[in-house]
Design a protein around this nucleic acid. Structure first.
Length: 434
RNA sequence: GGCAGGUUGCCCGAGCGGCCAAUGGGAGCGGGCUGUAAACCCGUCGGUGAAAGCCUCCGAAGGUUCGAAUCCUUCACCUGCCA
């Protein structure tokens, strides 16, 4: 066994093991042997169920990326076909999305995937879309060649399916999902020699169904590997905050908000987050573990995560902008000391709104409640009023004393900005258009 | 197919003719402590409004009544028991 992780194939499994990224797998020994034998081709698919990928998907992407860095070849699969059908979920039948929408989402997700894998070099990634090999298959062909190998009895065992049967039922469409995903694995095995599929542990049933299909049809033994479902230490779902899902699309979750998400991670989640998302070497990660235990207030691990992942997802420049914005807005108070450029850059990262000069009467701007709503810090005037009356609103780092308070022109920083804050860590900007 | 019960605010769940925008818990939000954490304590929690008030709301549509989340009818869905 060679020592260099970049070159040695088998160390990838050791790496995943210490990172606790293996929830389930087919015979690990066999997988290890396959990885040792040379570059493997693996895939992990992403269905277009939203306009963007999110942090949960990122965990999967990064696992595949680790394989690529270890010298294996990833296939980046976008589920243009499976996205039209929908994987059964516990809670109920999905609503089918219009084809044009799915096509749009496929484009967006494909674009996102492109930035995480290396599409050049000796083990270049390949982008594939299962729509390409599914659209032309006839129903009869599919039922005879693929469907015949599936036992409904076994399909019924699947957790989501069983839950649905016990409740409101499941359409034939969704029930068929597993066949499509299995068909994908078979296709990729035939076309690219793909012998490993990874995914979240909720995908175990779908993945092994593909493994079985390949065994029956091709008499070949291929592998499956799943990663643990990411949960926070308090058991709640990971990757969601008060404000919702953390998306990779900067239009849906700004780089600033993305950075803040990591910076605000619970201490108790730090080990899992570092193991799952960071590409730092083990000694560095362990150093951050102990830093969190010994000097938690410094939040070195949270900052390291924020820096590394914001840079990875949004690029170095955006990462620096997001971090500087945080420093500016959460710094030691004196906002007036910030340069106009720094302030503008910071506030453009945060949620912000606009006041038209025509709204300023005798040097008085609209009331703080209006401004809170306008920059998105409050969802209604009622909520804004509540925030102010609870003492949770501040203007240029000064607590807003009472309801109905209106800023004056003299309060404008550099003649154009107001910094609004709701609670301790939600900051927004108001800009007076010139 | 027959009989019985259910459908309440983001979720769970009380209410069973007026005092109900609707008890309670959870989530969320704010304050305090702290580290732009967690836990904990306190407050808050439909919209609008400074307030009084007004508007919307208790599966859907009708009806009874001065007045309905609460009673009646029909419809939809869910749950038990019997076939």
């Amino acid at each position: 066994m060679r020592k260099d992780a970049r070159v040695t194939n088998s160390t990838i499994l050791d790496e995943l093991l210490w990172r606790e990224l293996i929830a389930q797998s087919t015979d690990l020994g066999a997988l290890q042997a396959a990885a040792d034998a040379g570059p493997m081709t693996l895939y992990c698919g992403f269905d277009p169920t939203a306009p963007s990928l999110h942090l949960g998907n990122l965990a999967q992407i990064l696992t595949v990326r680790r394989f690529q860095q270890a010298g294996h070849r990833p296939l980046a699969l976008v589920g243009g076909a499976t996205g039209l059908i929908g994987d059964p979920k516990m809670t109920g039948e999905r609503q089918l999305n219009p084809r044009e929408i799915v096509e749009d989402w496929v484009r967006r997700i494909r674009g996102q995937l492109e930035s995480f894998y290396d599409f050049s070099g000796t083990h270049a990634a390949v982008m594939v879309n299962n729509y390409d090999w599914t659209e032309g298959v006839s129903v009869l062909e599919f039922l005879r060649d693929i469907g015949k190998h599936f036992s409904v009895n076994r399909m019924l065992d699947r957790e989501a399916v069983a839950a649905r049967l016990a409740k409101e039922g499941i359409s034939y469409t969704e029930f068929s999902y597993q066949l499509l995903q299995s068909f994908d694995y078979l296709q990729l095995f035939r076309q690219f020699g793909c012998t490993l599929q990874t995914g979240g542990s909720d995908q175990w049933g779908n993945i092994t169904a593909g493994v079985d299909l390949i065994r029956r049809v091709e008499s070949a033994s291929v592998h499956a590997l799943t990663t643990p479902l990411l949960t926070k230490s308090d058991g709640t779902k990971f990757g969601k905050t008060e404000s919702g899902t953390i998306w990779l699309d900067p239009g849906l979750t700004s780089p600033y908000a993305f950075f803040q998400f990591w910076l605000n991670a619970d201490d108790s989640d730090v080990p899992t987050l570092l193991r799952t998302f960071s590409f730092s070497a083990r000694p560095r990660i362990e150093e951050l573990f102990s830093a969190t235990v010994e000097r938690p207030h410094e939040r070195a691990a949270q900052r390291a995560l924020a820096q590394e992942l914001t840079a990875l997802v949004h690029g170095e420049a955006e990462q620096r902008a997001a971090e500087s914005a945080g420093f500016a807005l959460f710094g030691q108070g004196d906002l007036a000391a910030l340069s106009a450029d720094a302030l503008t850059a910071a506030l453009l990262e945060a949620p912000n709104g606009v006041v038209d000069p025509g709204e300023i009467v005798d040097g008085v701007l609209p009331a703080v409640e209006d401004l809170l709503v306008r920059c998105g810090l409050a969802s209604s005037r009622g909520q804004a009023r509540r925030t102010v009356s609870e003492g949770g609103a501040s203007l240029n780092n000064e607590r807003v004393p009472n309801e109905g308070h209106s800023p004056m022109v003299g309060d404008l920083l550099h003649g154009e900005w107001l910094v609004l804050r709701r609670g301790k860590r939600t900051v927004g900007g108001i800009r007076v258009e010139k």
